[in-house]
Structures are given as C-alpha cells and as structure tokens.
C-alpha cells in the first residue's frame, strides 16, 4: 500500500457558480487524496462535477471554499506566476479534444511546455522524443498533427502532457473522439504510466471498461463523492510485471 504523502488532495473543496438565488453548486465539499503512482478513475452522470474536479486539480479554476493541494502546496496560496510554473512542470492535461497546435510538428508540440519553461531547444527535443517513444511513436515525428491518425494524435497529446517528468496527469474523457481499438490502446498507455514513471493519473471517464484499469474508482453525484471502490490490498509481482 502506498503511504507516500498525496500528490493531489482536496480538502472540503466547494465550487459554485453564480450568486444568491442563481448560485449553482458543482462540487459540495470534496475530500479526496491521490497518492503518487496511483491511477484514480472518476465516474458519474453528466453534470455531476467530474470536469470541475479536474479543473480545480490543475489550478484552471479556484475553489469557492476549501483547499486543493498539489504536492502539499495549497493552490490558493500560489501567485499567478507560481501557479503557471506548477502547471508547466508538475501537471499535465489530456482532453477529449486534442488541442494540438496544427502549425507545429509532432515533436514541436511535445517540446512546447519545456521551451516555455526555459529549457534549451536541444534538451526539449531530446525529452520530447523520449516521451513520444514511450507512447510508441518513433517515426515521422517532424510531420504535422494532421498527418497522424486520431489515435496517434492523442498519443502526441499524452506525450506533451507527461514530458518533463510531470507527476500528475489529468485526463478528461481522453478517448471520447476515438474508436474502440484506439481507445483501449490509449487507456492501456495511461494505465501504464503510474508504474513506469510513478505519475499519478486522474482519469475522468464514463466507460466502466476504462475505469476498471484504475487502482480506485470514485463516483460523483450532484457534486458529492457518493462511493468508491476499495484500493487493491497489494499489487502482486505478476501484476506489476504485466504492465508496461
């Protein structure tokens, strides 16, 4: 069992939109901790607060009350600059829409967060190629996103999200635009990351098949965690050997 301090923690986190009579609660007091190297799946009906949860985790939105901590740091205490640095270095995102820059090549897309962080082009390129290789992409890396299939584009997007040893990956319905075979491959790759690199992954999905890859599944309803599956007692050596 993983006893490391959580990489991501929600403490009585509340998020509401609007005020007074029109105030709507997206999250109502979330308490949740994600350990380094844990794959957590978040499920729930449309409008239950799944995506808002990810937005708070990545500092894209601030909680209305309570705290969201990444690696022990309360995001509410960080300056805009520190928050931007955290998003570049520690947290990666994968969305249903790929959000690749069409005018940059595959490798340039993956280099982008490292270059924004001040790394040299040479260092960034090396790290980007390594990340793409991890995702099974080693050819035609200087081609543009449109030259790749949907599944390959999503792999480029995941490479961009993990490049630079990011410790927390937030994935919001990452297979939404893909066919079944590509979806399975993408989720298998995401599921391998925790054990390959110790990356914690939070996967929002409505597909039970994909949620079943997770170490733990939490269920949201009306902005509240209503239940969760138990953590596995232990990962057997065979299980560990089978991933990656």
């Amino acid at each position: 069992m993983n006893t490391s301090p959580p990489i991501l923690e929600f403490v009585d986190a509340v998020k509401s939109f609007g005020r007074g009579e029109t105030e709507v609660y997206a999250l109502r007091g979330i308490n949740l901790a994600v350990a380094p190297g844990e794959l957590l799946a978040v499920m729930g009906p449309s409008g239950c607060g799944k995506s808002t949860l990810l937005h708070l985790a990545g500092g894209l939105e601030a909680p209305s009350a309570g705290q969201v901590r990444v690696d022990g740091r309360n995001l509410g205490d960080l300056s805009a600059e520190d928050l931007a640095t955290l998003r570049r270095r520690d947290v990666g995102y994968v969305f249903q829409r790929l959000n690749l820059v069409p005018s940059l090549t595959a490798v340039e897309n993956v280099m982008l967060p490292l270059e924004l962080d001040g790394r040299s082009a040479r260092q960034a390129r090396q790290a980007a190629i390594a990340a793409l290789n991890t995702l099974g992409l080693s050819h035609h890396l200087d081609r543009y996103p449109d030259d790749f299939s949907g599944g390959q584009q999503q792999r480029i997007a995941i490479a961009r999200a993990i490049v630079g040893e990011r410790r927390l990956l937030l994935a919001d319905e990452p297979t939404g635009s893909l066919d079944t075979l590509n979806s399975d491959q993408i989720v298998e790759m995401l599921a391998a990351l925790p054990r390959q690199f110790g990356t914690a992954v939070v996967l929002v999905t409505h597909e039970p098949r994909f949620a079943s890859y997770a170490d733990r599944v939490v269920f949201l309803r009306d902005g509240v965690v209503v239940d969760e599956t138990p953590r596995p007692l232990a990962d057997t050596p065979a299980a560990l050997a089978g991933v990656g």
Binding site: M43, R209, V217, F219, T229
Partner: peptide
Amino acid sequence: TRHRTALLALLQLRRRERR
C-alpha cells in the same frame, strides 16, 4: 450506488486477473 461500486470492483478484479 451499492451495485455500481460492487460491479466496478468486480471489473477491476477481472482486469488484474487478466494481467
């Protein structure tokens, strides 16, 4: 809620068995 959690736990178990 109770059944969904149990079924998901079952799917997780099967996934681990497959590994």
